[in-house]
């Protein structure tokens, strides 16, 4: 995300993940009010997104921590380096630097970070165009 901070949801629909967070376990529950006229319709299985720490979670965190020292060991001075690259419009005689910059940029967004939201992003966009 950009430095300017807060992403604004605005009037556009939020991503599917946000929708699921909201409408599947919040709001009034019809069963509490209604008896004979209630219809039990089959719902597609949707796993509410509850964080349950598991072995997989732990291994992922361990891997993330291990990835961290790669960027740390080459991290010193990199912000300046990147600024240089930017100010020079990426035209640089020092060939190694852009490559390092790319590595650093990749480190900013570990591959598993938010990967669960990717398909939902396209869903959101599709809805957005409709409206």
């Amino acid at each position: 995300m950009s430095e300017s901070g807060v992403a604004r949801g605005g009037a556009s629909p939020s991503g599917l993940a946000d929708v699921i967070d909201t409408i599947l376990d919040k709001g009034l529950v019809i069963d509490a009010y209604v008896g004979v006229s209630l219809v039990g319709i089959e719902l597609l299985t949707i796993n509410a997104r509850i964080v349950v720490a598991s072995v997989d979670t732990y291994l992922r965190f361990a891997e993330a921590v291990n990835r961290l020292d790669l960027s740390e060991s080459s991290g010193e001075g990199l912000p300046e380096l990147m600024k240089d690259i930017t100010s020079q419009g990426q035209v640089s005689g020092k060939g190694a630097e852009p490559a390092q910059g790319a590595l650093e940029a990749a480190g900013e967004q570990p591959y598993d970070f938010d990967s669960d939201q990717e398909p939902q992003e396209s869903a959101r966009r599709r809805r957005h165009e409709e409206g």
Binding site: A11, P13, S14, L16, V19, I20, T22, I23, L24, D25, K26, G27, L28, V29, I30, V34, S37, L38, V39, G40, I41, L43, I46, A123, R127, G131
Partner: peptide, 28 residues
């Protein structure tokens, strides 16, 4: 899911609304 939330959110922007949890169906 999106239809449910969009309708309620658009409504809420104009008037008070009590949202129901997704999946509430009655006979008639």
């Amino acid at each position: 899911l999106v239809a449910h939330e969009r309708l309620l959110d658009a409504t809420a922007a104009e008037v008070p609304v009590l949202p129901l949890r997704f999946g509430a169906v009655m006979t008639t």
